[in-house]
């Protein structure tokens, strides 16, 4: 057996798909019990589909089944070279005898025998002896035997006496190395996908928050407040956060409707979609109103700073709603964000 064969090219590393299943099964069968079925076995297919891998795998398998088997693999070019040397050295008889004594002969790249009539003649000679001894012959080529130009008809007939099988196109059955490549990456991707799924779906509050963001964004509302909460390491009070945000959006829409009612204003349209800038929008509405009608007062709240004497004394109570504790908090938060954005 040729010792230069790639030890990694085995049936275990051969990627089997629909296109090459038949060829692989036949090759395995012939290697396990040489000379009993599919003899000769001719495997053809385009360059790169894995013919050499399959031939090599057959050699390894045959040797593993029977350590004493006389098996030999060689590309046709080597066969031609050896024959040429044998002719030059007057050793054709020895050449034939050595080949005829094999239990398994594997020839690769048969198409390279095209036009080499002396070599074809020798192969036909040896062929008969091998078949007579029930030795297995396996041949690979890039096309079916009858499509190989300038090949002796007797040889073509012998080649087609057994099983001639297509190994499939390159797009259907990758060579073993290509299969290993894609397998490595596919396995990696599969593992990463499982882990990512566990990570991103592992915290229900994040999922709920992300869904809320998507929903509000779909309605054109700016969701910076929710996004900040989503990025935090710890879970917020989700009900309070989403409830407060929803309430602000509702108020945003009320003010927008009021602004439309009072007529056109010099307004940044982004304000109409940003709950974090509610105060600004309210101030614009107050200014846009034609008469100094009192601003609608929200329901009194406990510890409302606007009702404190200090605030009243300072003349800041014109917009009592502005001084609601929760709104003051949000206003400052929004201001921080805007400053950070502008500084940038």
């Amino acid at each position: 057996m040729n010792n230069m064969l790639d030890p990694h090219s085995t049936f275990d590393t051969f990627d089997i798909g629909p296109a090459n299943r038949l060829a692989a099964a036949a090759a395995r069968s012939a290697a396990q019990a040489p000379g009993t079925a599919y003899n000769p076995l001719v495997i053809y297919g385009a360059k790169g589909v894995g013919k050499t891998h399959l031939l090599t795998a057959m050699g390894h398998l045959a040797r593993s089944v029977n350590r004493d088997i006389e098996a030999h693999y060689e590309p046709v070019d080597v066969f031609v070279d050896r024959l040429t040397t044998a002719i030059a050295e007057n050793g054709v008889h020895e050449f034939r005898t050595a080949l005829s004594g094999l239990d398994l002969l594997i020839l690769d790249d048969l198409q390279n025998l095209s036009g080499k009539h002396r070599s074809q003649q020798e192969l036909i000679e040896v062929w008969g002896r091998l078949i007579d001894r029930s030795a297995q012959i396996v041949v690979a080529a890039d096309r079916p035997p009858h499509e190989i130009e300038d090949l002796d008809d007797r040889l073509v007939a012998r080649l087609e006496e057994g099983l001639v099988v297509d190994l499939g196109g390159a797009e259907e059955a990758e060579p073993a190395t290509g299969a290993a490549e894609s397998d490595e990456f596919s396995d990696f991707l599969s593992d990463v996908s499982s882990t990512v799924a566990a990570v991103v779906e592992g915290a229900p509050w994040r999922k709920a928050l992300a869904q809320a963001i998507l929903r509000w964004e779909g309605e054109g509302i700016r969701t910076r407040r929710l996004e900040s909460a989503l990025e935090a390491d710890s879970a917020p009070d989700l009900d309070a956060l989403l409830g407060g945000f929803g309430e602000d959006v509702r108020r945003l829409r009320e003010i927008s409707a009021d602004l439309q009612a009072v007529g056109p204003t010099d307004l940044d349209p982004a304000l109409l979609y940003d709950p974090d800038r509610l105060q600004e929008l309210q101030a614009i509405l107050d200014r846009a109103r034609p008469s100094p009608a009192p601003v609608p007062r929200p329901a009194p709240r406990v510890e409302d700073p606007a009702s404190s004497p200090a605030v009243a004394e300072a003349g800041l109570a014109t917009d009592r709603w502005f001084f609601r504790r929760d709104k003051i908090d949000w206003a400052w938060a929004a201001l921080d964000d805007r400053l950070l954005e502008e500084m940038g």
Binding site: D187, F188, D191, V192, T195, V196, A198, V199, G202, A203, P204, W205, R206, A232, D233, S234, A235, P236, D237
Partner: peptide, 25 residues
């Protein structure tokens, strides 16, 4: 190796999220 470090990195995130989330949820 790449799979190993990826697992380690992503699991660390998951652990951190779990720890943070379990305090509230």
């Amino acid at each position: 190796t790449l799979r190993g470090i990826t697992e380690l990195v992503l699991r660390r995130v998951a652990t951190r999220i779990d720890r943070a989330g379990s305090a509230v949820l």
